[in-house]
Simulated assay, not measured.
Amino acid sequence: MPITIKMPITLKSYLKMQVDTPKMYLVSILNENYVSWEFCMRILMDVFHKNLEDAKAIAHEIVTNGEGFCGGYMLEIAETKAEFVEAQAKKEGFTLICLVEEI
Rank of each mutant, 00 (worst) to 15 (best):
D20W: 13
T21W: 06
T21Q: 14
P22R: 13
K23Q: 11
M24L: 12
M24E: 13
M24F: 03
M24V: 09
Y25G: 03
Y25E: 13
L26V: 06
S28E: 11
S28V: 04
I29E: 00
L30A: 09
L30W: 02
L30N: 08
N31H: 08
N31G: 04
N31Q: 10
N31K: 14
E32D: 14
E32S: 09
Y34T: 14
Y34L: 05
Y34D: 12
Y34S: 13
V35R: 02
V35C: 05
S36E: 10
S36G: 09
W37C: 02
W37G: 01
E38D: 13
E38V: 06
E38P: 05
F39H: 04
F39P: 04
C40P: 10
C40L: 03
R42N: 15
I43Q: 01
I43H: 00
L44D: 00
L44C: 01
L44P: 00
L44M: 05
M45Y: 06
M45H: 08
V47S: 04
V47H: 02
V47C: 09
F48K: 02
K50H: 15
K50C: 03
N51F: 04
L52D: 12
L52N: 14
L52C: 06
E53R: 15
D54Q: 08
K56V: 12
K56C: 08
I58F: 06
A59V: 05
H60W: 12
H60R: 14
H60L: 13
E61M: 12
E61A: 12
E61W: 05
E61Y: 07
I62V: 12
V63L: 10
V63E: 09
T64M: 15
T64F: 12
T64N: 13
N65S: 11
N65W: 04
G66E: 04
E67T: 10
G68Q: 05
G68N: 03
F69Y: 11
F69K: 09
C70F: 03
G71K: 01
G72M: 15
G72T: 15
Y73A: 08
M74R: 13
M74A: 05
E76R: 14
I77W: 03
A78I: 00
A78C: 03
E79L: 11
T80W: 00
A82D: 01
E83K: 15
E83L: 12
E83D: 13
E86R: 08
A87P: 01
A87K: 11
Q88D: 09
Q88N: 06
A89Y: 11
A89I: 11
A89D: 10
K91P: 02
K91G: 02
K91H: 13
E92A: 10
E92P: 11
G93T: 04
F94L: 07
T95F: 14
L96R: 01
I97V: 08
C98Q: 02
C98L: 01
C98P: 07
L99D: 11
L99H: 07
V100F: 10
E101H: 07
E102F: 05
E102R: 08
